[in-house]
Simulated assay, not measured.
Amino acid sequence: MTANPILLQKKYSRVVECFAKLQGLSLDEALNFFYHSEVYQLIRDGVSDMHCMSDMYLAEELEQEYANKIENDINGVKTN
């Protein structure tokens, strides 16, 4: 299922703001990570109706992805 593009943009902004607060990142840093994340791709592509999930759920999913990226960067594992 696809969502209205305007509603998705609003959803993205709420999720990014929540993620930034959870991680203590600037909005620019959070936005940059978001637009390069798997979570964004899943929402954008309408996979599993991810756009229907709560903002906090999606921010927590981003948190997990961010933690994995940091860990991989520390261990020298190449990521996308």
Results as ranks from 00 to 15, higher is better:
29 E>H: 05
28 D>H: 09
68 N>I: 01
27 L>W: 00
18 C>Y: 05
41 Q>C: 00
45 D>K: 13
27 L>N: 15
61 E>R: 14
48 S>M: 09
21 K>V: 14
3 A>V: 11
59 A>L: 03
24 G>T: 04
60 E>D: 06
17 E>G: 04
65 E>T: 02
70 I>R: 12
18 C>T: 11
60 E>N: 15
49 D>T: 04
47 V>E: 09
5 P>L: 03
77 V>D: 06
34 F>P: 01
31 L>Q: 14
79 T>A: 06
28 D>A: 09
60 E>S: 13
4 N>H: 12
16 V>C: 08
47 V>W: 13
18 C>S: 12
5 P>G: 01
52 C>V: 09
22 L>W: 01
14 R>G: 01
40 Y>G: 04
54 S>T: 13
65 E>L: 04
74 I>F: 04
24 G>P: 10
12 Y>H: 13
7 L>E: 09
67 A>E: 15
74 I>P: 00
57 Y>H: 12
28 D>M: 08
17 E>K: 13
47 V>P: 02
19 F>N: 01
30 A>K: 06
39 V>E: 01
5 P>N: 12
36 H>Y: 03
36 H>Q: 11
39 V>N: 02
79 T>W: 04
58 L>P: 10
5 P>D: 02
49 D>H: 09
58 L>N: 03
44 R>K: 15
64 Q>L: 11
79 T>E: 12
8 L>D: 06
34 F>M: 02
33 F>W: 03
3 A>S: 07
43 I>V: 14
23 Q>C: 10
71 E>Y: 11
56 M>E: 15
4 N>R: 13
61 E>G: 03
4 N>E: 15
2 T>W: 07
38 E>C: 03
31 L>N: 15
22 L>N: 07
9 Q>M: 15
61 E>A: 12
35 Y>M: 10
52 C>F: 07
1 M>Y: 01
69 K>A: 05
